[in-house]
């Protein structure tokens, strides 16, 4: 009599021949088939469409004309705005993800410990998750309004300024603010993942470490961190993907301005596609973005694997 375990662990152990066995062997394929078909249909077709568009002369309404090969990519790579947007995208992604991790680790450590009002604290930290990014950005645009915004109102009332400050007038102020908002909205997800990781760490090893006289920092460095490292890695990879593709914050606050100084690849892409009607180049940007992200993720995965291989 075969059991589920047998199917799971030793599919080769099943007697060959017979309809039942054949069905069992194909069972996992039937189980993944819907997801595969569904994804290929809803995501795969648009990707195919994207590749087609990037290789053809195309009008602003997406009607394909002649095949032009890599011409759109050449135009793109000759555009200084593409390169400056790419660099800014990297700054944006690294800034937001790094900032998020640096804030979320201590926050998660605190929220994992037992203290008065922890439930309330957890709910407050999760709050940014409850508003959509677009709405958050709209609220901040209003908050940062130079004349009537509440940030200046507060600074006035505290006597810190006597003239309105236009927070979004220059990239020097606007871009760091956008990164800070990016961090703020990424904290809930990241903290939740870390809390999940911390909750899976068994209590008793801390007791043992404490008895051995390890300091709080040593316990964190040598016990907690290695144990939640998989969670940190997951959070980093997912955040990189989300932040790299994140559109509403910058779009709502500055639309990439002034003078393209806060443009990242997604805002550049959006303008190319929907403002300027250059669908061919826009498709090329999409594919370039995908390539960068893929490279990013592969390098990261490779670094992790190397680290694990080197670990004792």
């Amino acid at each position: 009599m075969s059991s589920v375990r047998a199917i799971a662990e030793r599919p080769d152990a099943l007697p060959s021949g017979g309809l039942r066995a054949a069905m069992r062997r194909s069972a996992p394929f039937w189980m993944i088939a819907p997801s595969l078909a569904f994804t290929i249909f809803v995501i795969g077709y648009p990707v195919y469409d994207l590749v087609q568009t990037s290789l053809h002369d195309v009008n602003r309404f997406g009607q394909l004309r002649g095949f032009v090969g890599t011409e759109h990519f050449a135009t793109l790579f000759a555009d200084p705005l593409f390169w400056s947007s790419l660099v800014r995208t990297l700054i944006w992604t690294v800034g937001v993800v790094l900032g998020t991790i640096l804030v979320s680790v201590p926050v998660a450590l605190i929220l994992n410990d037992d203290f008065a009002g922890r439930g309330v604290a957890r709910v407050i930290i999760m709050l940014p998750w409850a508003i959509s990014l677009t709405m958050t950005a709209i609220v901040w645009r209003w908050t940062l309004n130079g004349q009537a915004g509440m940030l200046n109102a507060t600074l006035f009332e505290l006597g810190l300024i006597d003239q309105p400050v236009e927070w979004l007038a220059t990239a020097g102020a606007a871009f760091p603010i956008e990164i800070a908002i990016g961090i703020l909205v990424s904290i809930p997800f990241t903290t939740t993942v870390f809390l999940g990781g911390l909750a899976s760490v068994p209590e008793d090893i801390y007791e043992a470490a404490r008895l051995d006289g390890a300091t709080a920092w040593q316990r964190f460095r040598h016990l907690t961190l290695p144990l939640i490292r998989p969670f940190v890695n997951i959070a980093i990879v997912l955040n990189i993907i989300y932040v790299f593709n994140s559109f509403p914050i910058i779009w709502v606050l500055t639309q990439g301005g002034p003078a393209n100084s806060t443009d990242i690849l997604v805002t550049y892409l959006y303008k190319l596609a929907f403002r300027f009607g250059k669908l061919g180049e826009a498709s090329a940007v999409s594919l370039a973005m995908f390539a960068v992200l893929l490279a990013f993720t592969l390098v990261y995965a490779w670094m992790l694997m190397r680290k694990e291989a080197n670990a004792p």
Binding site: N145, G146, Q147, A148, P164, V165, E166, W167, A169, G257
Partner: peptide, 15 residues
């Protein structure tokens, strides 16, 4: 007004 690069058409009209 200071910070002109932060003033959209709608902001100007508000002023």
């Amino acid at each position: 007004q200071p910070g002109v690069t932060n003033y959209s058409r709608e902001n100007m009209q508000d002023l």
